[in-house]
Amino acid sequence: MSTSTRKRRRGSAPAPAPVPAKPKARSRSRSRSEPWSIPLLDEWGLSRFQQRLVVVAGSVAGVLVATFGFILAVGAIGNGYVPEQATSSAIGGQPRPDTYKGWVSPKLFAPIARSEDDPKPLTLKDVFAEKTLKGDGITLQLAGTHLDADCAAAVWGQELVDLLAQGGCTQAARGVYASADGRYVAQYTLLNLRDTASADALVQELTTLHRGGWTQILEADKAPFPVGGHTEGSGHAMGHYAGLVWFGRADGADPGPKDDFLSLGLTVRGAEKAVFRRVVAADPEAVPAP
């Protein structure tokens, strides 16, 4: 290789250094912050507004109305419930709810965990003392009541009859309501059982048992229940009592956008004030009397 060639190579410009890749600009998140919510309550289908109501109610639970309303709301929203959807609202001509949710007894009702702690029998005057129940935009008027000393007379389905017998059921108080505008009907049944274990077992077993056994319709001219129509139900253990809620539109139609079944279920549970009074009678410091 010649000297001139070496000089030319040595004098040539060095190869340009690689240009570093431009860092990618961080993409700005276009999504706005999620609206305030509680994931568990989202799963239960509550709107943001309803969730806020539950939280607010809990924060003022020391006030009587808030205490009672909060307990009902918690019972309606759920505590480990398992909803069941049935394919038909009647089996063999016997009406029962299309859906059912059940909850075991809260600690609040510990003072009346056993019937011997609360021996005074139920009366219709006690359970259905209020002829009108008012909720969020719903007013229910009592249309009929009945008290059975034989719990088997208040229900249908042999398995349910046997379960009530095993639970030592001694009374079944039923009341049927119609909304002031005639749009809804509702029935509330309060069962007097042996103890909390029996009440818990009943509301839990009904998660599937309601398909083949439920409460009998209490006939009332002013509150005809929609046989064969869409209805919904729930069960609530309260110490040695179990309350069964059953409601729907009077025309039997499925609920529409304007039908607030959550509020309807809470409103009919106003009959449970009688149970709260019994808690106070057994333990005056347990909860303010309604």
Rank of each mutant, 00 (worst) to 15 (best):
G213Q: 10
A21P: 10
K131C: 00
A165V: 13
G157P: 10
E205V: 06
V56A: 12
Q187W: 06
T215K: 11
A152H: 14
C169G: 13
G213V: 14
F261W: 12
H230R: 06
F49V: 10
Q166C: 00
R32C: 00
P121W: 04
Y188W: 09
T99H: 10
A152P: 07
E130K: 08
A242G: 09
V56E: 08
W246H: 12
V275H: 00
A223H: 05
Q50K: 14
Q50L: 05
A76N: 04
I38E: 00
A153Q: 14
P95C: 14
P288G: 00
W246I: 14
A25H: 10
T145L: 06
P18Y: 12
G233W: 14
Q166T: 11
T145A: 02
D148P: 03
P284E: 00
V203L: 03
V82S: 13
V245F: 09
G92V: 07
T5K: 06
Q204A: 11
G270L: 02
A186D: 09
A220H: 06
K22R: 15
V65T: 05
P119S: 06
V245G: 01
D42T: 09
L72D: 06
R26Y: 06
G11E: 12
A57S: 11
A15I: 04
A15N: 01
H146I: 12
P257Q: 06
A172D: 10
V55F: 04
P83V: 09
D148S: 11
R174T: 15
G213S: 10
A154V: 14
A286C: 01
S31G: 00
L206K: 07
R249I: 09
H230M: 07
L163P: 00
R194N: 05
V279A: 08
A253P: 08
L191F: 15
S27T: 08
G256E: 05
R183C: 01
V104Y: 10
I71M: 09
L218S: 04
A271H: 09
A178C: 07
P111I: 12
G69F: 15
V63E: 03
S263I: 08
T139P: 01
P23T: 11
L140H: 02
W44V: 11
